[in-house]
Structures are given as C-alpha cells and as structure tokens.
Design a protein around this nucleic acid. Structure first.
Lengths: 232, 232
DNA sequence: TTTAAAACAGACCGGTTGTCCTGTTTTGTC
DNA sequence: GACAAAACAGGACAACCGGTCTGTTTTAAA
C-alpha cells in the first residue's frame, strides 16, 4: 500500500478547489427546499450542512447567521419563484384575466402531475416569519407588493387597449393574489389540488357559477352582464 | 420576622388546590396565543410553563407531548375560532353573500381598531404544521372542510329559498375561504388590513366585470377606497 | 515569489429543548 | 379513616442548536 495514494489528509492534503459561487448556490438550494418543506425553525443548520455537503466554516463564511441565510432565500429564491410563475406569465399573456387563468391552470396541472402540494413558497415563509422578525416581514411584504403591482399594471395595460374599463386594477390584483394564496393554502393542507380549480371557476364566473351550463362563451358572457347589477 | 408568616415551602407546605380543568384551560390559553404569535416550533414549553404558571409535571400530566398540546389547541381552539367568526355568522346572516360580507367587514373593522394583524389562526398553523405531521394535517384539513361546507350549506339554503340559482355552492365556498385566507395572509405580512377591503370589494363587484355599466353603489365604494388608500 | 485576503475545515461551547423520572399532595370512594 | 388514583412538583438528562473560534488551504494581485 503506497503511503502517498492512501495518504491521510495531513500526509496528502488533498486537492481542494474553491468554488464560492457554486457552494453558495448549493447552500441556497438546500435551504430553500428545507425551508419550504419543513419551515425555517424546523430546519437545522446541521441538516442543511449535511445535505449540501458543506462544513460549518464554509456556511458561516457565506451566511454569518441563519437569519442571513433565510433572508437570502427570500430575496433571491422566493422572489424569483413569484417572478417566474406569476409576474412573467401575466405580463406575457394576452390579457390580465387570461394570464391569471393560465397561471392557475398551469399550477393546478403541475400539482396534479406530481401528486404532492408543497404550497406557495411566499405564503409558506410569510406565515412563519412575518411576525417573527421585522426584516423578514419587510422582505416578504415587498414580494407580495410586487406580485400585486404586476397584475394591476397588466390590468392598466388592458385598459389602455380599451378593455377592462370597469375593473379596479388594485382590487383585481388583490383578489387574484388572495384567491391563489388561499387556494394553495387549502390545497396544501388537504393535499388536494382540486380546490384550485374550484376557485378559478368561481373567479371566472364572478363569484357565481352555473352548474347546469358550463359551456359556451357567449352564454357565459351574457350571464355575466346580467349579473352586473346584482350586488356581490 | 416570624417564621410562620414568611415560612418556606417546606416549613409550611402551603395549601394546594387541584384544579385540573382550570389548569388545562390556562395552558391552552397560553399555548394558543404563543402558537399564533410565534409559531409552533418557536414556542418552547419552558416559556409556556412560565407564562401559564405551571410546572413541568402538571403540563406533562395534561399533555404528554408538545404535539398533543398543539393538537388540542387545533381541535379545541382553532376550530372554535373558525366556528365563532365564520360558521355561526354565516348561518345567522340573511344570506350567504351577506354573511360573507359581514364577516369580512367585521374582521377588517376589528383589525383596524387594534392596529395589529395576527393573521388567520387556522392558516397560521396550517402552513407551519400541515407538512410536518400527518395528524396535524388531518385536523387542520378537517377545519378547512367544515368551514367551506358551512358556507356551501348556506348557499344551498338560499337556493331552496329561490335565490342563488346560478351559484355553485362548493365553488362559492372555496372562493370565499380562499379569498379570506389569502387576504389575511397579505394583511399579516404587510401589517395593513386595507387589502381585506380591496378583496371584499373586488368580490362583491364580481371578478369579471368587463362591461362599462356601473351602479351608483359600486362607484361610491371605489371612491371610498381611493380616499383611504395608503402606501403599501 | 511574496503576500494578503478570501475560502474553507472542523472542533468547540454555552444555552436551550422536549421528555422522563421520582416523589409528594390532593381528591374521590368505600 | 383507609386507600387508590388523579393531580401536581421539580429536578435530571441527553440531544441538539446556532454561533464562535482557530487554523489551514486556495486564490489572485503585486
């Protein structure tokens, strides 16, 4: 047995390649997943270190505290998730309503496919952390705000194109985000994505739905107008 | 200094009065408050014991584990809160829509008065615990289900009275609960209850108001929101 | 090559956590 | 009053957590 090949760490220190960006990314990946699956307080740095294959020194070098790590997850990962699954699709859609509908359906389809509901990344952390720390709350509130603003902006763009004249952008955005958040909350708790489609259908039919006649865009639109003068 | 008056616990053992129900209630009170304010994992049994003035032995006697305590909070307190603030008012209201509206407004008024948003008790715990433990999830899902079912039942009652013929009970209930849950989530994160009224207004005016005809009531309501609009 | 800073390794520590355990006191029943 | 069970007291403990610390290696600039 050669002493050089099977050398101990001291005899042959081994080759280490510094990769700060890659290591940071790995830690964020693991932290994001664990925070979503188990929550912030239930995720220990020891578990994260083991899962990411990172030592305590390296972790501390990139993220001095657990809070700093969570803040990075919120600002870099959660915000990006909202941007990717909501903001960009809504901006790219033909209209605000169509954008909202497509996101609902895309998420519902994805959940049905993978058979497991992890919940909304933003809401998951918001519930646990927004009352615990002011910095957490500010970061999370900013993402919520940007989310709603993007939808409201899309409504305004529709309005400049002559559509959605009777729609209040802010209210519409609040309702869309609230409905999605709440539906995901229920879907996560029940581990059943069906409620997402229920909410989408109810939303599209203006809080009312006709169980006896679901088809026909013309009929739907006529009924929608008829319901205009009815409160709620 | 008299030895009898300032006697130590050993010298004069003191009179202890067993009050199992009262002690249990005190523990539940403290646990409910702490779980809502700080979350389950961030609440230590030591803190709860100190706040409730209860020893470890007594706590363990009534609740063998922390999980058992949380389960009791969910089944006895969270369920009761949903019953009191949602189910009973909706059943007592003149109609399902009116019930939903009155609850939204009552909660919004309460939040504005106390100037602090604690969030929805059910959603707060659901997000943190529904993925952590199967028993937690089942208990929380049951409350969500009862909540929606009560609203759906109220719609059905309206329908038997000749109203709401075009409304799907299940969908309507899902939308109401989801909107409320999501709105409370945003209100908690932003510490601003204004979004609750935004959502209620959007709900009442119908999420799909694409035409330009507007009743006086709707226009009035919109103006009110503009007046009370606050920076986010 | 020299050198200083960045990147990483890994042990260490004080404090906390949830639970268990052994006693003691109270309570209801006969 | 006897007595068993319930109710409560309080210490002990092992595991764990997050953060710190010292030391080593890599990297890049000079």
């Amino acid at each position: 047995m050669s002493a050089e090949i099977t050398a101990r760490p001291k005899a042959r220190p081994g080759k280490r390649t510094n990769d700060p960006d890659g290591l940071r990314k790995r830690v964020l990946d693991v932290a994001e997943a664990s925070f979503q699956a188990r929550g912030y307080h239930a995720s220990s740095l020891g578990d994260l270190m083991a899962a990411a294959g990172v030592t305590g020194g390296a972790l501390h070098h990139h993220f001095p505290t657990k809070k700093a790590l969570a803040l990075a997850v919120i600002e870099e990962r959660v915000a990006a998730a909202v941007e990717a699954t909501w903001i960009a699709p809504v901006q790219a859609a033909g209209s605000a309503r169509e954008g909202v509908r497509s996101v609902f359906e895309a998420v519902a389809a994805e959940l049905e496919q993978q058979g497991f509901v992890r919940g909304c990344p933003l809401n998951n952390l918001a519930h646990e952390l927004s009352l615990a720390d002011a910095d957490f709350r500010a970061a999370l509130a900013g993402i919520f705000s940007a989310w709603r603003e993007a939808i409201a902006d899309r409504i305004r763009a529709d309005q400049q194109a002559g559509r959605e004249q009777g729609t209040d952008p802010q209210r519409f955005a609040a309702l869309a985000v609230a409905t999605y958040s709440g539906a995901m909350s229920m879907a996560k708790t029940a581990q059943d994505s069906a409620v997402l489609r229920d909410c989408l259908n109810a939303l599209e039919q203006g809080a009312s739905s006709d169980s006896s006649n679901k088809g026909g865009a013309v009929a739907k639109r006529r009924r929608r107008v008829l319901r205009q003068h009815r409160a709620f």
